[in-house]
Structures are given as structure tokens and as C-alpha cells.
């Protein structure tokens, strides 16, 4: 079942001499529950593509259709709600609010939504990510791997249908990288989520169902591994 469709995406930065075409006419479709890795060299446009999919960066041209709706037709507020409910982000720099503790950081998306928190579900994801004994620690008191697990928990809280991860292991050592990847895969299977991951690590990419390879803003290959 198709969840996300990208049609003729172009993204152009700057003007005149500084004009850079980050994305040139990108087209693909992703089905529900797929694990897609977007790979490519530095500057190939893979992060930009992920931002466009996540409703963070308006494309210069083209459409992003999620569940049958073009998200860039939304006004700013509705686009924010799209990011809040449909998408969970995991970033390279863990991006936690420094003044909030682990539990509060995880709860943020629900707070922004003014929705009631499912305590059972909260405990479930906290346990799943092994953060139970860190609930009331501040981000500054956690290791890199632990911080990344907090941001995964935060991404899962609103039960989004799509998880977007931008180099989630970029700042982690190999042991933590493996753990984080396991958790991402585990949760995407458990909650039937679509996982789209940007990486330049070929080992990580090889654990995906499908690899989209970008070069200079264009898709050079799109392969299903399994």
C-alpha cells in the first residue's frame, strides 16, 4: 500500500552565480512498512530530500503526497501538524531540549498536540529503548547513544506512520550505532511504520529493504534488496 509519493521534486538554493540545484526532478513511491535507505556522497542532496519529505523544507517545484494529500498545499500551521502527527524525526545531532529531562523530552510531541499521554505506551517505549533508569536525567547527563535513544522515543511517541532519520548513527561509536539501528528496525516492525533513513554508511544501508542512491541531486539507482 502506497503511503508516500514524490513527483518531480526540484530544490534550488540561491540565485544567479550562487544558484545551486540541490534536487533535480526526483520521482519515487514508498509503500507502507518499507525500510528505505537513501545513500549518496556528501552534497548529493540526500538530507535535502529527507527534509522535503518531512515537511521541513518547501521544494521549489513538485509535489509530496502523503496519504493522498499534497503536504505543501498546507498552510504553515497545518504543515506543523503534519510533522507532529504523521512524521517522527531522528536527527544526527540528537536535538533534545537541554532544560527538560528525558521523560519530558519524549513527551514534547504529545504536549504540542495537547493530546493525552498514553502512560502505558510511554512506559513501553521507555522500556523498549532501555531508558527506564534515566527517566529524570537531563540530556547533558546522558551519553551520545542514550541521547539518540531519547530522540527515537520522542519520534515514536505520537505513533507516526513515517519515521525519518537523518544519519542517526553519524555521531555514535559502532556499538551504539548497532544498538540504535536495531531499535529503529524493531520499532518500525512493531508499530508497522515506514522507515526512511539517510546514511552514507554502506553497512547500515545494506540492512534496509530498498536503497535509493543519489548523486548530484538525481537518483542514479533505486534497488530492492529484499
Amino acid at each position: 500500500m502506497e503511503i508516500l509519493k514524490v513527483e518531480g521534486i526540484k530544490k534550488i538554493y540561491g540565485e544567479g552565480e550562487n544558484r545551486v540545484e540541490a534536487l533535480k526532478n526526483i520521482n519515487f513511491t514508498i509503500n507502507k512498512g518499507e525500510f528505505v535507505a537513501i545513500v549518496g556522497a556528501s552534497g548529493s542532496g540526500k538530507s535535502t530530500l529527507l527534509h522535503v519529505l518531512g515537511g521541513l523544507d518547501r521544494p521549489s517545484e513538485g509535489r509530496v503526497i502523503v496519504d493522498g494529500e499534497d503536504i505543501y498545499k498546507y498552510k504553515e500551521d497545518k504543515l506543523a501538524i503534519y510533522r507532529r502527527r504523521k512524521v517522527g524525526f531522528v536527527f544526527q545531532f540528537f536535538n533534545l531540549i537541554p532544560v527538560l529531562d528525558v521523560e519530558e523530552n519524549i513527551l514534547l510531541p504529545a504536549m504540542l498536540d495537547n493530546s493525552d499521554v498514553d502512560k502505558k505506551y510511554l512506559d513501553e517505549i521507555i522500556n523498549l529503548l532501555g531508558l527506564n533508569d534515566r527517566r529524570h536525567h537531563l540530556p547533558s547527563e546522558l551519553s551520545g547513544g542514550q541521547q539518540q535513544r531519547v530522540s527515537i522515543a520522542r519520534a515514536l511517541l505520537n505513533k507516526p506512520s513515517i519515521i525519518l532519520a537523518d544519519e542517526p548513527t553519524g555521531n555514535l561509536d559502532s556499538k551504539n550505532s548497532r544498538e540504535v539501528m536495531e531499535l529503529l528496525k524493531l520499532s518500525s516492525i512493531k508499530y508497522n511504520q515506514t522507515l526512511i533513513l539517510v546514511t552514507h554508511d554502506i553497512n547500515i544501508a545494506s540492512s534496509a529493504d530498498r536503497i535509493i542512491n543519489l548523486k548530484d541531486g538525481e537518483i542514479v539507482s533505486d534497488k530492492y534488496l529484499r
Binding site: 518531512g54 504553515e76 506543523a80 510533522r83 502527527r85 536527527f91 531540549i97 537541554p98 514534547l108 504540542l112
Partner: peptide, 14 residues
């Protein structure tokens, strides 16, 4: 921080 809040779905009003 504000950027992050925006990324995870805070509206400008919030």
C-alpha cells in the same frame, strides 16, 4: 531549540 520545536511540529503560534 525553537528550530527543533518547529521540526517536531510546533506551530508558529505555539
Amino acid at each position: 531549540e525553537f528550530g527543533l520545536l518547529r521540526a517536531i511540529g510546533a506551530t508558529p503560534k505555539q
